[in-house]
Design a protein around this nucleic acid. Structure first.
Lengths: 361, 361
DNA sequence: ACTATCACAGCACACGTGTGCCGTAACACG
DNA sequence: CGTGTTACGGCACACGTGTGCTGTGATAGT
């Protein structure tokens, strides 16, 4: 059916070994350039395509990255990962790797089931976006294929992590507002207390405020966590007045994430405030921000970049010789943690403040 | 390294053939139930996992679906496909198939390159979401793996298509507004003239209006096509007043797609109109609709369902024996075209009209 | 002329699994 | 006891590719 290297060999009165060496550019033994050309040409003519199964059966390398997907609910609120998928896909492709999707996994057990695929499909490495579950179970797997966690992951990871560094983006956001003339800024979130990510971003906000000698108030509502987007919008809308009361003459708000910022949009409209005329709003993530009215200035979550980096890291780790891997294990080197700096994307929800003093409304 | 069926056989003084038959439940020749149990148990003990490469090298079946992705721009406006990916993934998984991602493909040539993967990875079938390119090139491929187009595809397809039937959703939208008490409705789009999808949806709108004996005006601005989301929002915002002028006392608007509806949100705000108090707005697609303020009533694009159906169809086609495939080709049967009826998702952008007559503002 | 060297070609096996066919015990029946 | 039948186990090969090792012809060196 399909054309094999044996077909090519037979047609040229060669052995398939020679054809294989030529196709893979094995220069261990010299083969006449003329033969090389003839093989190349007939391969082209016959439309030869190598069989990946046979190849990786022999070599042990699959040139395939496994990707474990979570959160498969049909109407899932989470359109978060598409950009990351694009990044992972691009990063893998640029290295000649393909992507095998494992999942969607609804439960922890299914994720473990996904890990078995590493063995079954002989995937070279695994990338898991946004994994928050128990990490001990993950490492119990006997396979030596590296597992890279991408974005938003548990911090106690024993596995390499590629994640966002929000601080540069938040500093850029504060700088941006300061340059527009804002002097009194509000931090706003409706997340649960003890969310490390919130703490980190708040600290970055505080630091930037201090450096710029601005007035800044942090309003963390400390509500539920792990909300879906729609619910976050609601809660934000409801609690924003309370937050604003802590700094009534604020002219700009920086929100922990995008749904929170949309809630602020709604709350502002409720009060008759116009964005950005009366209030500048900066969100996070850049999922829906571009289609909002007005389009929203955000700190990007850099999902594409994180995904690409994660793919590259996973491939790099899988290609380091096993000896060095064992060595690094025995020495117990510090876990790899690549951070991608967040960037500010300026759109139309930020402008120079109209009122320079006095409380709003 | 990895445990094989030979290891199991050796441990039990059997031949690997017997083990293989037991694992695959080949009942062609009867094997003592006792041996069966012992093999099963040792397979479990040793943690045996079949090697997919070896298996599909032998059987020719890969149990893998190829998925060709388009539109990989880093900050792509198009978060369209995530739900469909979830659907495809779920559908494939439920049949025991995995997903191999091919792409992202930037150009037509790369899509063709993706098709070569069908041969290289011996993928059983290919699913291509939203493919609008030339279809002759696609079919020139010699491989007999079926190619299923999913959603939004060119209509002259010679390949099986799974797509949305927008009409039921639009009828439901009109019904919904009518039941709320609306009598004068506007259809609004800013797409290019000759967009068949627009025509189809407009026709459904007109039909529903007629059946309900309502007053309906269709405002198609006939602007550019293939816009990104942000630009569509802008154009919609700018041109909506012009549309509204054609039916000044309209109390409800149905928009061709979601960005257009967001533009209407903005245009309404520009005029001081409140949604849904002064104007009910219905969008399409359900990508960002849930996070809008107010959350938007939409006709769903059913991406998840379309993806799932496409995966199931692709698998079904790949499993039909080659003879029947050839037969159907020679007889030139009608191309398969599965349509998923659109559904209305009611949120908060629709309500009973406050003013029953007279122009707005 | 004999041999060492070189530049290649190809045999044979391996990777892990699936399967047609034959061998072989056990058993029953005449 | 001989033979047919049944119920199973295993040999051998296939899938397509990669590679160590050996074979071979030509050329050069002594």
């Amino acid at each position: 059916m399909a054309v094999t290297i044996r077909d090519i060999a037979k047609r040229l009165n060669l052995s398939h070994s020679t054809v294989s060496r030529i196709i893979n550019n094995r220069d261990s033994s010299f083969i006449s350039t003329e033969t090389r050309a003839r093989v190349r040409q007939t391969a082209e003519e016959l439309g030869y395509r190598p069989n990946y199964h046979a190849r990786s059966l022999q070599t042990g390398k699959a040139c395939v990255l496994g990707l474990v997907l979570e959160k498969p609910e049909p109407n899932s609120e989470d359109r978060f990962w598409q950009s990351m998928l694009n990044g992972i896909s691009t990063g893998a492709r640029s290295r000649g790797y393909d992507l095998l999707i494992i999942g969607p996994a609804r439960e922890q057990s299914e994720i473990e089931r996904g890990l078995e695929y590493v063995t079954e499909h002989r995937v070279d490495a695994l990338v898991i976006p946004g994994y928050l579950g128990s990490l001990d179970q993950l490492s119990s797997q006997s396979s030596d294929a590296p597992i890279v966690l991408a974005g938003n992951s548990a911090s106690n990871a024993r596995h390499p992590v590629v994640d966002l560094d929000a601080a540069p983006g938040i500093e850029a956001a504060v700088d941006h507002l300061a340059e527009l003339g804002h002097r009194r800024l509000l931090w706003f979130d409706v997340e649960r207390e003890g969310n490390g990510s919130v703490d980190y971003r708040r600290a970055a906000f505080r630091k930037a405020i201090t450096r710029r000698a601005l007035k800044g108030v942090e309003a963390s509502m400390n509500l539920e966590s792990r909300l879906n987007e729609e619910r976050t919008v609601e809660l934000s809308r409801r609690h924003f007045p309370e937050a604003l009361a802590r700094l009534p003459d604020a002219t700009g708000v920086i929100c922990y994430n995008e749904p929170t910022a949309f809630g602020v949009y709604a709350a502002a409209a409720d009060r008759g405030l116009r964005v950005p005329r009366d209030l500048s709003v900066i969100g996070f993530d850049d999922i829906h921000a571009a289609v909002a009215a007005p389009s929203m200035t955000v700190v990007s979550h850099m999902l594409y970049a994180i995904g690409m980096k994660a793919a590259e890291l996973a491939i790099a780790l899988s290609e380091t010789p096993a000896t060095s891997v064992k060595k690094s294990k025995s020495v117990a080197t510090a876990p790899i943690r690549e951070l991608i700096p967040a960037e500010l994307i300026v759109r139309q929800s930020t402008a120079a403040p109209q009122r320079t003093a006095g409380p709003i409304v």
